[in-house]
Amino acid sequence: MGDTEFHRNSTFSFLVHDSVSFEWKIKSYNSIIMCNRQMKKIQSPLFSSKPDDKRKWYIEFVPKKIISGSTKELHIKLYRTDQDQIYVQACIFLKTATSERLLFDCDNECILYPGQWISFQENIGDVADELGWHENTPDILTIGVEIRTYFHSEVTHLTSIPKQVPLIDKQVPIIDLESRSLIADIATYFEDPTFKDVSFFIRNKEFTAHKNILASRSEVFATMFRVKMSEGLTSKVEVEDIEPVIFEKMLRFIYSDKVDDLKPAEASPLFFAAHKYDLEKLKNICIKSLYENLSIENVIQTLLLADLYSLGKLRESAMKFLVFHHSNLRNTYEFYSMVQSHPHFALELLQLQASSKL
């Protein structure tokens, strides 16, 4: 994605046809390893230099535990979706939230024939040492790639031709990080006490969880655990502003990425919990439930919540609902209390009522 460049060496000249840079951020890397019992490959999203480019690239590898002293190899492969013969130079790098980029071989120039990949490998022990990966390292691994492809009529004269290999290793199934199978694997750990390392105490009820999973889903949890570790505190957390049933639903969402059987009365307190722990998708689920279940019984509470958290569309819908059912609500204690604490609502209601009569 840049200006065209012209290059020469002793045997041929060529033009830069295209260039691509991409970073794949893998959150909760250690949790993925823990859940990936069958040693499945994981695959990055497709990427390219331009949205309409027919040539897409993706990264694929089997996650392995990064630990100093390991003698195992980390293999990372770079694939493309088209079947053209191209001349390519590629570079892979790794980094964490606290480390500099660790570059793999950047002189990997070759002709890439249909059905071929580019492979990078590095000793895991060396990777751990270079990245400074240790127990307290933020559990996020980023794999980056920089690719240049070239064209020239004399490209077939090159001699650095890679070994021909099949595009897919059929003995190892491929999954995507967002696949339902991986989410289902993680969801099973909610009921499994193995490796749980943090306890939450709410109204004399205890909930246990995995720090890595919580931290990967919520930056609030990640910050909380980092602070507690730095202060030498125990892995026990008191929660005073969320009811146990709501906290349990939030935990289940963190593990499963879904909410089962959300009752209308639970949507508001669950939204508060989602807001507290910065769970954007869960907030949207709650907002959708509140919007779809507006009623005379909950409209005032919904309006107050929408006003407090600046939820414009939900606030507008609640106000319109309130105007339409004003005769049923104006003599209730909830309506009187709302007007006393939020007098601007009274003016808005009058304006909406007047405009509806025009």
Rank of each mutant, 00 (worst) to 15 (best):
N204S: 13
K205N: 06
K205P: 00
K205L: 02
F207V: 03
F207G: 07
T208V: 10
K211M: 10
N212I: 12
N212F: 11
I213N: 05
L214E: 03
L214G: 07
A215C: 11
S216G: 15
S216E: 06
S218Y: 04
E219G: 09
F221W: 05
F225R: 02
R226D: 09
V227M: 12
V227N: 10
M229N: 14
S230E: 15
E231F: 11
G232H: 05
L233M: 14
L233A: 14
T234A: 13
T234W: 02
V237I: 15
E238T: 15
E238P: 11
E238R: 14
V239Y: 04
E243S: 06
E243H: 05
P244L: 03
V245Y: 13
V245H: 15
I246A: 03
I246D: 04
F247L: 04
K249R: 14
K249A: 08
M250N: 04
F253K: 05
I254W: 04
Y255G: 09
S256D: 02
S256E: 00
V259H: 08
V259N: 10
D260K: 14
D261Y: 11
L262M: 14
K263C: 11
K263N: 12
P264L: 00
P264F: 00
A265H: 08
E266Q: 13
A267E: 05
A267V: 09
A267Q: 06
A267F: 04
P269F: 02
P269Y: 04
F271M: 01
F271I: 00
F271N: 01
F272L: 13
F272T: 11
F272G: 06
F272C: 12
A273Y: 02
A274R: 00
A274F: 00
K276V: 07
Y277A: 01
D278M: 07
D278V: 02
L279D: 08
L279M: 14
E280S: 13
K281T: 15
K283H: 02
N284P: 01
I285M: 06
C286L: 01
I287G: 00
I287N: 01
I287W: 00
S289Y: 03
S289F: 03
L290Q: 01
Y291R: 12
E292S: 11
N293V: 01
L294E: 03
S295L: 02
E297D: 15
V299H: 11
V299K: 12
I300H: 06
I300T: 07
I300K: 07
Q301D: 15
Q301L: 14
Q301G: 15
Q301R: 15
T302P: 12
T302R: 09
T302S: 14
L304I: 10
L304Y: 07
L304V: 08
L305E: 02
L305H: 03
A306K: 01
L308T: 09
L308S: 00
Y309C: 00
S310F: 09
S310E: 12
S310W: 03
L311R: 00
G312N: 13
R315G: 05
E316A: 13
E316S: 14
A318L: 05
A318P: 03
A318E: 03
K320V: 01
K320M: 06
F321R: 07
F321K: 06
L322H: 06
L322F: 08
